[in-house]
Write a protein that binds this DNA or RNA. Sequence first.
DNA 1: ACGACGTTTTGACATCTGTCGATATGTTAG
DNA 2: CTAACATATCGACAGATGTCAAAACGTCGT
Lengths: 118, 118
Amino acid sequence: MFFVNDATVPPEPEPCCAPLLRSPLDEHQASELADVLKALADPVRLRLVSIIAAAESGEVCACDLPVLVDRTQPTVSHHLSLLVRAGVLEREQRGKWAWFRLRRERLAAVGDALVNSG
Amino acid sequence: MFFVNDATVPPEPEPCCAPLLRSPLDEHQASELADVLKALADPVRLRLVSIIAAAESGEVCACDLPVLVDRTQPTVSHHLSLLVRAGVLEREQRGKWAWFRLRRERLAAVGDALVNSG
DNA sequence: ACGACGTTTTGACATCTGTCGATATGTTAG
DNA sequence: CTAACATATCGACAGATGTCAAAACGTCGT
């Protein structure tokens, strides 16, 4: 019910993170920023992101996540795919496992959008 | 509600913005951060915040907002109250008008939580 | 080819959310 | 007090969201 999904968005030009809050956002800018914030605005997804962000190796196998956030595997898969679609995570298939990495630039861009409002 | 609270609960404990994403968040931290992010993760609310943030005087009368975001007065009132509850905005009643100011520290704290994850 | 295993998709469901019209509450002016 | 106005709350409703079980899809080792 959203848009046709494209699993990976490599060529995506980093359209992210709306300008800031130093001047009124128009509807389009607000929707874009809201989309990324919505992806982050869930306790389970925040925990997933933080777990991946804190990983020594910088990446985490999807197989380890369900137990860590106490949700079923399909639920975790759903959350992960939302985070990927929002550009917060990067997914890499390696054999039969899926590995996820944090896209720090993306997250930083969102953070900047908020910080630079003051 | 569930857990015993600290003996002294200051009026406004500023519990905000969860730690960061440099170490895995526990459920409580994740919920707190998610609450603030949820308050921001809506296009209309982002526009309200940006309008108020951009105001010369630093504050905006609620009476001006419905037309600016193209929503009815009850809807705007609802969004504003969510933002106040989340600690993003400050409300001051002045005569029969309600004025809103941005709580920049709060917003900055959320931004930091995201930026400091990388 | 087969079976085992990891992941995604589907279908279903309860809950939450954004929105509005109608109404209630509150504040000021006369 | 009353009228007029600003804001909040209520009730309702469509649509989105989080969750799971079940089934489909992919990838590997045998």
